[in-house]
């Protein structure tokens, strides 16, 4: 069971990487079909047979066919990715992915929580606010920080969108 799972997992990771890395969109789509099929294999190992088969029917058999239709209809060729701006953006993208992976690995090591588990509520004398504060800043610190980043992103987005056009509207098509 475990070697089979490791095989499917390796195939899933490798095909997902190939989806992201390959230049030709048709090949990316085909690799995605393969990754969906390996995911269906993992579902079968987890005793979710109905979901495994539905995954193949819906994702690999219908959604990816839609993707391939559109790619063939638009007659897309290899993606051309040159230029310094693109390279910089790509570097930032990989960095963000690496940071996310590192965060995930850290959480995995610590059992998905920072701080000890609170088995029972703190005594009534300290009150609800103190109790939640205790839990929020120890065990659930990571989601708390991530939420603050989420709010920051929302703020920046709102400011940019609400600022309006700085230059006059020249392009009208």
């Amino acid at each position: 069971m475990i070697p089979l799972f490791l095989g499917f997992a390796a195939m899933l990771v490798i095909t997902s990487l190939m989806v992201v890395l390959h230049k030709n969109p048709v090949t990316s789509a085909l690799f995605l079909v393969l990754s969906f099929s390996s995911l269906a294999g993992i579902y079968l190992l987890l005793h979710a047979e109905f979901l495994g088969m539905v995954q193949i029917v819906v994702y690999a058999g219908a959604i990816m066919v839609l993707f391939l239709f559109v790619i063939m209809y638009l007659n897309l060729q290899h993606d051309v990715e040159t230029g310094v701006q693109i390279a910089v953006r790509r570097g930032i993208g990989w960095l963000a992915g690496a940071v996310l992976l590192l965060a995930g690995a850290t959480l995995l090591r610590r059992g998905w929580a920072l701080g000890p588990a609170n088995e029972m509520l703190p005594d009534e004398a300290s009150g609800n606010v103190a109790a939640i504060g205790k839990v929020l800043y120890s065990r659930y610190l990571f989601p708390f920080e991530i939420t603050s980043i989420l709010l920051l992103v929302a703020m920046i987005g709102v400011i940019i969108i609400a600022k309006g056009r700085a230059r006059s509207a020249g392009e009208t098509t």
Partner: peptide, 28 residues
């Protein structure tokens, strides 16, 4: 292991959205 696998695939997806320029690949 399962959750780690899910996290890895999710991160690969995030990288894909950030790195690629082709709208279809971003969708994938």
């Amino acid at each position: 292991w399962l959750i780690a696998l899910s996290a890895i695939v999710f991160c690969i997806g995030v990288v894909g959205v950030l790195v690629r320029r082709n709208a279809l690949v971003i969708f994938m």
